[in-house]
């Protein structure tokens, strides 16, 4: 049964308005990045549509790319290594858990599940990583604590369990070892599920600021998100390090502080904005599959 044309039209109108409202914060960031500070002050503030477009902020960043490139490098490295290691380790434990004939299956399940119910909290975790392991300002601190995600393990295990046991048994008859079975038999069949957890993990690493906030102090070890956060408060320091100001700015001595801030924000958010529409379905799948009791 479908609603009448009129109802549908008004629902469309509602969604168009809602979409505009949702996009408003993004639009205002884009506009601000394209305006000059002089203009912002003259107009009395940020506007949704600039009276003229200035690319000074982007020019300035283009000529001083080291900071943002460094942050990109940290984030990309963390995301790639973290995701690869995480998927490998998650697939391993999920396969063991999916094997109904594994002797310690119940115990192992509970061992993992309990961490979803209770945690020692932030403080002991912080002391462990920062002091006991002494991982401050290292890639380890940004990668290792986030490698295992119990939710993803259960998601993958539930999926592996749907694979017919005959496949595993016939491989065993042929004398295959468990490692071979996992990588030659299970992984090819479960590629969609593995892709799902890979995407979830990669996005989590890319957007992570928590580990950076806790354990990174050295500016050149800061991932993208942390660089952005530091910019919110220390934009002047960052700008003072920039050289090669465009001529127009040198003459007026007007550094486009606000515009640079928002331009940096867009440069950091950009890859995510372009990538997420392609991976959207994985997130819904992650939610729905995960929400089923395992």
């Amino acid at each position: 049964m479908h609603s009448s044309r009129l109802t549908r039209l008004s629902i469309h109108a509602f969604f168009v308005l809602l979409s505009l409202a949702m996009l408003l914060p993004l639009i205002s960031v884009i506009t601000t990045s394209l305006s000059s500070d002089v203009e912002i002050i003259r107009q009395g503030g940020y506007t949704l549509w600039p009276t003229s477009f200035h690319f000074d902020a982007y020019a300035l960043i283009w000529k001083n790319p080291f900071q943002i490139l460094g942050a990109y490098q940290v984030t990309i490295l963390v995301t790639v290594i973290g995701t690869a290691v995480s998927v490998l380790i998650t697939a391993g434990v999920a396969y063991t858990l999916a094997r109904r004939d594994y002797r310690f299956r119940k115990g192992l399940s509970f061992f993992l599940f309990f961490t979803m119910l209770f945690s020692g909290g932030l403080v002991p975790f912080y002391i462990l990583v920062a002091q006991v392991l002494n991982w401050r300002d290292t890639y380890f601190a940004l990668i290792v604590p986030a490698v295992v995600n119990v939710w993803n393990i259960f998601l993958l295990r539930t999926n592996f369990q749907r694979i017919p046991i005959e496949l595993i048994e016939s491989a065993k008859m042929d004398g295959a070892r468990e490692f071979t079975i996992l990588f030659r038999v299970i992984v090819p069949v479960a590629t969609p599920a593995i892709a799902t957890i890979a995407v979830l993990t990669a996005f989590a690493y890319w957007n992570d600021w928590w580990l950076g906030l806790l354990f990174i102090n050295k500016p050149d070890m800061a991932p993208l998100q942390l660089l952005l956060r530091n910019m919110l408060s220390n934009i002047e320091i960052i700008l003072s390090r920039m050289r090669d100001m465009p001529l127009s700015l040198r003459v007026t001595n007007q550094v486009p502080t606000e515009a640079v801030r928002m331009a940096m924000c867009l440069i950091a958010a950009g890859p995510m904005l372009f990538a997420f529409p392609f991976f959207q379905k994985y997130f819904v799948k992650g939610l729905t599959v995960g929400a089923v009791k395992g």
Binding site: G92, T96, Y102, F179
Partner: peptide, 25 residues
Amino acid sequence: PWELTLLALPALVLVLVFAYLPMFG
């Protein structure tokens, strides 16, 4: 079951260190 245990081991160790050790903390 050595092989299956070995496959689960890396995750096991990480959970032990980053989830259970802090519990004693």
